[in-house]
Computed example of a mutant assay.
Amino acid sequence: MATVASTVDTTAEAKLLRFALKQDALGSGAFGVVCVAAAAVFGELFGLPAALLYPVGAFLVAWAAALFLLSSRPAIGRAAVGVVMAINIAWVAASVELLVAGWFPLTGLGIALVIVQAVVVAGFTGLQFAGLRKHA
């Protein structure tokens, strides 16, 4: 019976997974910084309250730091990547819920923003899954 390793190797085997984690970190960090720096402007432009954008932005900056740390480790734990993917899936589900429930009076640009960022996060998650499967 084959044993599944609990970590991903540091060499080229983990190239796709590291790439996916770093891209997720870059996107999350950039979006987080913009949310914190321009919460009032974003709130008006997209129909989202600044009081929501500040903590979301701060979370995203911290999330980005955690993703960079994970991607730079000598061995990437599969369980850690599973947690990252679960959080990303929860983010996408919350984005859909935000649209369906109508919690905020989103503008057309706000609806587009929520859809685009959810699609991007889903894409990162797909790449992370592919990176894990490639080395199973």
Rank of each mutant, 00 (worst) to 15 (best):
V120Q: 11
V56D: 07
L98K: 02
G110H: 02
A58F: 07
G131C: 07
A122L: 15
A64Y: 01
V41R: 14
R18L: 07
P105H: 05
A38F: 15
G102D: 02
Y54I: 15
L132A: 08
V100P: 02
A64C: 03
V41M: 09
A38W: 06
A51P: 03
E44Y: 05
G102I: 02
V34R: 02
G47M: 13
L67N: 08
F46W: 09
L17C: 04
K15W: 11
V84L: 02
T11D: 15
L26W: 06
L98S: 06
L60S: 10
A62L: 15
A94I: 04
F46K: 04
D24R: 06
V120G: 07
G102P: 01
L109C: 06
P49E: 00
R78D: 03
A75V: 07
K22I: 13
Q117F: 07
T11M: 09
W91S: 10
L45C: 01
V36I: 14
V83E: 00
A12M: 14
L98I: 02
A51Y: 05
F59E: 03
V4Y: 14
S28Y: 00
L26I: 13
V81D: 01
F31A: 13
M1Y: 08
L60P: 05
S71W: 13
Q117K: 11
A94Y: 11
F129R: 14
G110R: 01
V36G: 04
V41F: 07
F59G: 03
L98H: 03
A38N: 05
R78G: 04
L16G: 07
L113N: 12
R78F: 04
A62H: 01
L106F: 05
A12L: 15
A118N: 00
A51I: 07
G126Y: 05
G108C: 01
V100R: 08
F42H: 03
G29C: 10
P55G: 00
W103N: 10
V8H: 11
W103R: 11
L127C: 10
V4A: 13
M85K: 13
I76V: 15
A2T: 11
A50Q: 14
L99D: 03
Y54L: 15
A37M: 04
